[in-house]
Design a protein around this nucleic acid. Sequence first.
DNA 1: TCTGGGGTCCTAGGACCC
DNA 2: TCTGGGGTCCTAGGACCC
Length: 384
Amino acid sequence: MHSNRRIAHLDMDAFFASVELLHYPELRGQPVVVGGRRVDQPRLRPDGSREFARLRDYAGRGVVTTSTYEARALGVFSAMGLMKAAQLAPEAILLPANFDAYRDCSRRFKAAVATIAPHIEDRGIDEIYIDLSELPQDSLSLARQIKQAVFDATGLSCSIGITPNKLLAKIASDLDKPDGITLLGPDDVATRIWPLPARKINGIGPKATEKLGQLGIASIGQLAAAPLELLVRHFGQRSGAWLHRVAHGRDERPVVVEQEPKSISRESTFERDLHPRLDRAELSEIFTGLCRRVADDLQRKGYTSRTIGIKLRFSDFHAVTRDLTLPAPTADAAAIRRAAGECLKRIPLEQRIRLLGVRAGGLVPLKTSGLGSEDIQPELPLFR
DNA sequence: TCTGGGGTCCTAGGACCC
DNA sequence: TCTGGGGTCCTAGGACCC
């Protein structure tokens, strides 16, 4: 087992907002928010300048996807409702999300990193882990080289943390944002990690933070000092032991280069909550559309699915799921619609519906390569 | 002024099999 | 008639992440 690893975490700085600033450089230095649905694209005035939507003009159910550092300074952060954000920063510029541009930029920055350090784990559109263990250069040179390559490929800055494992690298990349480099060794855990709030650990969310707070544990250092048996008593054997481990900066998870997806889903929150009977036609159309999009996604990505599921969110925001495992995997829109319909029958509809979702799990890759017949599994036992 | 959309992983009970 | 474990699959919900 390789015990002297060098793991980097790279995080693009305010990614979506930064991509937008490449297109609209005149917005640099201003509070800018990306998010919402049906937000107007900037309009060109007769004099050639652009007119942008303001946060105060927004009405609807959208949330902040990303905000520039200037907007964050006003208290506007990711996942905040736009109506609330508008209270805090009414004059901030509001731009609609342009996912095609972000995906394109994402591909370019990852390809640029791969030319220097190919051992990459994808963690979504704007961040990656990189295993640098086998590379000869020192960490600071590598970090600078990678940042330069990312900038050359995209015009964007990122922040990098390099440490002995993924857990610490993820925390480190956030310590000197934006455009930062943070290198940490095992000896830095007590001085650099322990003073931080427990919430900074990837995997400790709002619920765990609240529960830890009730035990008088706020910082990672306090978590490290807590007796293992106290943590096990309140969080269970597995989670308790995990909390104890991560508080001491221990993490042996490998950098995983290739991963098959586990599920593919589509969901939609409506402009207004829909009534199960009065809005039946509209709901049915949306439902069928979601099934078709899931089928399209499956076919485009080359998968079939064994388990079809649905999700409903009601007016009171409470969500319910149902799923159904099929006798044989499918990527067919009509078959998915039938299975989803069976799931829907099992949900009592006593409230207006806010969101509808369709999910395909139990994914089976469609093998396109010419594999021998020995790889084809019989669907059912031959005798029963 | 209520809170998006795409995911992963974990838990836990029941069915079913050996 | 009652008593066992162990293992896997299915289903529902929830925490968490980007």
